[in-house]
Design a protein around this nucleic acid. Sequence first.
DNA 1: ATAATACTTTACAATAATTCCAACTTATGC
DNA 2: GCATAAGTTGGAATTATTGTAAAGTATTAT
Lengths: 142, 142
Amino acid sequence: MPTLKKPLQAAPGRKMKRTPQRLAIFDYLDGNKKHPSAEEIYRSVSRTYQSMSFATVYNTLKALTGKGMLRELTIDPDRKRYDPDTSPHHHFICLQCRKIVDVHSILTVETPREIARDHLVVGTHVEFTGLCPSCKKRKKMQ
Amino acid sequence: MPTLKKPLQAAPGRKMKRTPQRLAIFDYLDGNKKHPSAEEIYRSVSRTYQSMSFATVYNTLKALTGKGMLRELTIDPDRKRYDPDTSPHHHFICLQCRKIVDVHSILTVETPREIARDHLVVGTHVEFTGLCPSCKKRKKMQ
DNA sequence: ATAATACTTTACAATAATTCCAACTTATGC
DNA sequence: GCATAAGTTGGAATTATTGTAAAGTATTAT
């Protein structure tokens, strides 16, 4: 059974039952920079936690997302990816291998007037697409 | 049978068979600013084109995307959305009703060194999220 | 500590989006 | 016109995700 590194409720109104399954998922996610999909999370966690069910993974991901402790990325056209780093940052995705990497540089993107005037903007996310170093190299070789 | 507004092959290497189904889909898409999903496209086109099949819609969308005549948006967590405007621009999506609007303002986003150094960047897309005018108003009223 | 309760987990069924397939049809180049 | 490569079709298959109802367990108040 995984040890608790951070409390599952980091802020008021965020209380969640502290079940071993959740702790295992949370533990896997904590500090994870790979932007895993639900399936990857399930595969990894269920290795150590035999009876883990897929529904529990989805439930937990949804709960954590709802409480703002996890960010759901829509950058991969095939599946949702999850990012435990909820601080504002951006991403690069490799068009070949779908690897996602964080972009922590502070990008100043002004919200255009046309939008700011009548919409309420709550988030700004920059997606860079292209080839990651290894796919770039592989392409060059052929 | 729909009329052809633009040639289906706009550039070399883009030749596609000019079938009535494709023309119908292309006609629906041409100038469309609603960022429709495959299902919306199917629903609309099959109204006038009885025998239209879902597979044809997906085939056509994939072909057009592959030839750079259509852009596949991954901004909606639930489904792919399609944008016939392939000129570089950005988007705003309403978190409530999932409406997507174009952002044609030119946003200057410098590619961060950390990425530019070893990756190959082919695209930069800014996603704004929040509430569209009507959802914003609706929220205020309650 | 314990019991009551409300929330969780589980296995599996159900959806929903998208892709695959194999037989049939058709646009296009000669 | 004909041959043929490419496209269409309906339905089955696949994949991601959600719903469900029964059984289990963390938490809270005792």
